[in-house]
């Protein structure tokens, strides 16, 4: 049956159906923006997130003729009453050079605490040139009651790091995720 022979009511129903499908699709699109955003961030370093997995390659060479200053800052999220500091505040490294820094977190409470640290690099474009071979942020760290924990982080900078990046800041925010983990097993993490 061609369009012309349909009654107005039938044509209205058809248009209604198409538009409803579109509305539902756009609702789905809102959720699609989440993985899409994460991919964009991975590629461009938009939100300054560093890789959440350990780098396995070894740097090919050390670029001895230039140094980049890396600064470390720490912040405490909700529910963290103890200490969270980095032993090193700033370090000058050659791209490709493997460097170890120590962070310390303490739990002055009388119960065990599970923590998660979230890294962020400013400016964001430096994030993808920062490779960590070992980091306390890759996993949740359990702090026993009264414990002060040494949390090492080993990193190197990509020898390809653009010349205009001479300095960047790596910030860690530590969160108490004890409750989240307790209620976790039945919910989905968005990463």
């Amino acid at each position: 049956m061609s369009e012309k022979q349909l009654s107005v009511e039938e044509r209205n129903k058809r248009t209604l159906k198409k538009l409803l499908i579109w509305a539902v699709a756009m609702f789905g699109f809102a959720f699609l923006m989440v993985p899409f955003y994460n991919v964009i961030c991975d590629i461009t370093g938009l939100n300054g997130k560093t890789s959440s997995t350990a780098a396995t390659d070894v740097p090919e060479q050390v670029v001895a003729d230039r140094t980049v200053t890396v600064e470390f800052i720490t912040q405490k999220g909700d529910g963290i009453s103890g200490e969270f500091t980095s032993e090193t505040k700033r370090v000058k490294v050659h791209p490709g050079e493997i460097t170890l820094v120590h962070f310390y977190a303490s739990n002055p409470t009388s119960t065990d605490m599970i923590t998660q640290s979230i890294p962020s690099v400013t400016p964001g474009e430096a994030a993808r040139y920062l490779h960590k071979t070992q980091c306390f942020c890759f996993d949740q760290q359990t702090l026993a009651a009264g414990e002060r924990k040494d949390m090492p982080m080993i990193f190197y900078l990509d020898p390809e790091i653009p010349r205009h990046i001479n300095q960047f800041t790596l910030s860690y925010t530590i969160f108490d995720v004890t409750e989240r983990v307790a209620g976790k097993n039945n919910s989905v993490a968005v990463n």
Binding site: V34, Y37, N47, N186, V188
Partner: peptide
């Protein structure tokens, strides 16, 4: 209420999203 972390950094989300 349902334990997701779309916008919560502690769970791997991002408030800027």
């Amino acid at each position: 209420h349902f334990g997701t972390s779309f916008f919560d950094a502690a769970g791997g989300g991002d408030p800027v999203l």
